[in-house]
Design a protein around this nucleic acid. Structure first.
Lengths: 208, 208
DNA sequence: TGACCTATGTGACAATTGTTACTGTATGCA
DNA sequence: TGCATACAGTAACAATTGTCACATAGGTCA
């Protein structure tokens, strides 16, 4: 575990890694599992060591809206923020792949801020990155119409999986953009005419 | 200054307040002044002692979108986040009233995290509050249509000024919601028919 | 008073998005 | 093989939002 930690979180000091090993537990999830629910009580900060998460905001009427991805080497800023007051989660997180997480108890999360410079910097960095990501999301919905939001969505998905072949149904996309399948089908067709994508059953090929 | 600081930031320890007095400078702005521009280099974290700010996200095509208000006793989370890497601002802030700010240099912002427990807690609290506010903003645009967004906007404005008489033109509102005046006029008329507001020239009376 | 400016009201129409309904087609499974 | 199911395409229409044009109303000031 020490080696993998060192690789995934290269900025962590040896002392911090030692502390993590001694105190934190590891939890695994299968692809598709819901890792955190809206309203759930949070006692742990989660570090991602393997796999990917998607973080959603849930609407009152059952809608869900994709905010961002979390990758190995990153942490859930919301879990940090809620943990700082043992609050309930304001978001929902789903495993994209099989996922492995390090669970750091709230008390240590705070203690380490004072004791480990590299932990402090990691936490501040996490806040910063998530805040910036959230600002980009606000942009995309405040200033852009659905066609551009769809392109933004596909690009992020492609960045996350590191490939140009997106295994997605139109319904998947519609759900995560909080719109309807027909709208997505229509816009994808237009993108195909503009030769930005090639459409197949259950997967979309990015050409750009 | 000591007394006013103690009143505005009641959680701060006496040592922290002493440190602020010795090291931070005060800056004043007039109502309507732009306090921070998108892209501006940030070296200071700003604490609000007097007046109110509005924080905007700016679009590429000149649009501006109101994210939240900042009140006395609060701090600009974006300035903290950017300051943590001496980055440029991702937002634009405008003074609503005459505003007075305490400017804390970047180096101290970090130093105090280790030295002053009450500063550490204030910073974490600030991240949390802003993150939550931002999530609410995402909600409002991801899940709600313009009529509900308008109501949300008017409510926030009313909360911020602490009154039911909003000195706003339709154009002001349209700009901050990134839509057009006609749309706002139309929706306000409907709200008037539903007896939620009473419309006057240059100001809107909330009835609810 | 009259010229002028800003704010608001409103009708007409366009564009986008949401909804309903129905079609066909690939896929897996009994 | 045939059936059930999930996925995709699309037409038709509704609702919302954006845009243009123009009218009117209130206020300022020379």
């Amino acid at each position: 575990m020490q080696d993998s930690l060192k690789k995934t979180f290269p900025t962590f000091s040896n002392e911090l890694i030692q502390d993590i090993q001694n105190n934190a537990s590891i939890q695994s999830f299968k692809a598709g599992d819901v890792i955190m629910r809206t309203g759930q009580y949070i006692n742990y900060t989660m570090l991602i060591t393997k796999g990917q998460l998607k973080v959603f905001r849930e609407g009152e009427n059952g809608g869900e809206f994709l905010m961002y991805y979390l990758q190995p080497g990153q942490a859930c800023a919301v879990s940090m923020i809620c943990a700082s007051k043992s609050q309930t989660s304001q978001i929902m997180a789903k495993a994209v792949d099989d996922v492995e997480l390090i669970m750091v108890p709230l008390s240590l999360m705070e203690k380490w801020m004072m004791e480990h410079r590299t932990w402090y910097e990691f936490v501040i960095f996490t806040y910063r990155i998530r805040f910036e990501e959230l600002l980009e999301v606000v942009d995309s919905i405040a200033f852009r119409a659905m066609d551009e939001r769809l392109e933004f969505y596909l690009k992020r998905h492609s960045d996350a999986c590191g490939c140009k072949d997106l295994k997605l149904s139109h319904q998947d996309i519609a759900t995560e953009l909080n719109t309807s399948r027909e709208v997505i089908s229509r816009l994808l067709k237009k993108m195909e005419q503009r030769e930005l994508v090639k459409l197949h059953r259950n997967h979309i090929e990015l050409l750009a």
